[in-house]
């Protein structure tokens, strides 16, 4: 399979070097993969996602996505890159409160100059929330808001869908629905990079689980069939590595 994301010896240091979020991480993600990055709070998993999205820059090392070295892009270049290649789903949805669901979905396309609403409506339909298209975020449930966020992430047909704890702000049932949705997208060929601290969710849906601890990758498990890979196996493997 074709390589889509590559992190090479990436280090990220915050607060003037006192704390390190990532420490010499190297990683490759292939096109079509559903990869989960797992780890406890502060392990560096969200930092990794932010670097891949071009929202942040590494202190050292390089990040390339779709053959583009993100370090060589300026702010405007990175913005264009995100528009063209990345879809981002946040834990807290981050919908714009003064725009309707449909308007939120359409924003990335409109930033590219695409004024059509067809694909937005199509996505809302596909995600089962067409009936709330004209509602404002404040009047949507958490699950509905996250589906809108997913639709927004998909509007520009991104090469890579990034999801940072997409179920973190949802109840179990709704979180499961969102993960099913991501699974469906993956089956349709979408490359997904998921950050979660929920091992159960990760192993149930992802084909590859990368464990991060203290800014380092401590495990990288490729599972032939996610359904047959119990989360307990991953947990045990992680614990073994740490010992």
């Amino acid at each position: 399979m074709k390589e889509l994301v590559r992190l090479t010896d990436v280090t990220k240091v915050y607060q003037g070097g006192i704390t390190g979020a990532l420490n010499g991480v190297s990683l490759a993600v292939e096109k079509g993969e559903f990869t989960a990055i797992m780890g406890p709070s502060g392990s560096g998993k969200s930092t990794m996602l932010n670097l891949v999205a071009g929202l942040d820059r590494p202190t050292s090392g390089s990040v390339s996505v779709s053959g583009t070295d993100l370090g060589k892009l300026g702010e405007t270049g990175l913005a264009r890159f995100r528009r063209d290649h990345i879809g981002f789903v946040f834990q807290f949805f981050y919908l714009l409160p003064n725009l309707t669901a449909l308007e939120n979905v359409l924003i990335p396309a409109q930033l590219k100059g695409d004024g059509s609403t067809d694909r937005g409506r199509e996505l809302l339909e596909k995600l089962g929330i067409a009936d709330v298209a004209d509602r404002y975020p404040a009047r949507l449930s958490g699950g509905q808001q996250q589906r809108v966020a997913v639709a927004r992430a998909l509007i520009n047909n991104p090469t890579l869908l990034l999801a940072d704890e997409p179920t973190g702000a949802l109840d179990t049932h709704t979180g499961e629905q969102v993960m099913e949705l991501l699974g469906d997208l993956h089956r349709e060929g979408q490359t997904i990079l998921l950050v979660t601290h929920d091992a159960k969710l990760a192993t149930r849906h992802a084909a590859r689980v990368i464990s991060v601890m203290d800014g380092k990758i401590v495990d990288d498990a490729r599972l032939a069939s996610p359904e047959r890979a119990p989360s307990e196996v991953i947990r045990m493997r992680s614990e073994e590595k740490l010992r």
Partner: peptide, 16 residues
């Protein structure tokens, strides 16, 4: 600013 950051994460350029 959070909305602006969100927009930037969705691809809004500094100029925009």
């Amino acid at each position: 600013i959070r909305d602006t950051a969100t927009l930037k994460s969705l691809g809004m350029s500094p100029r925009q």
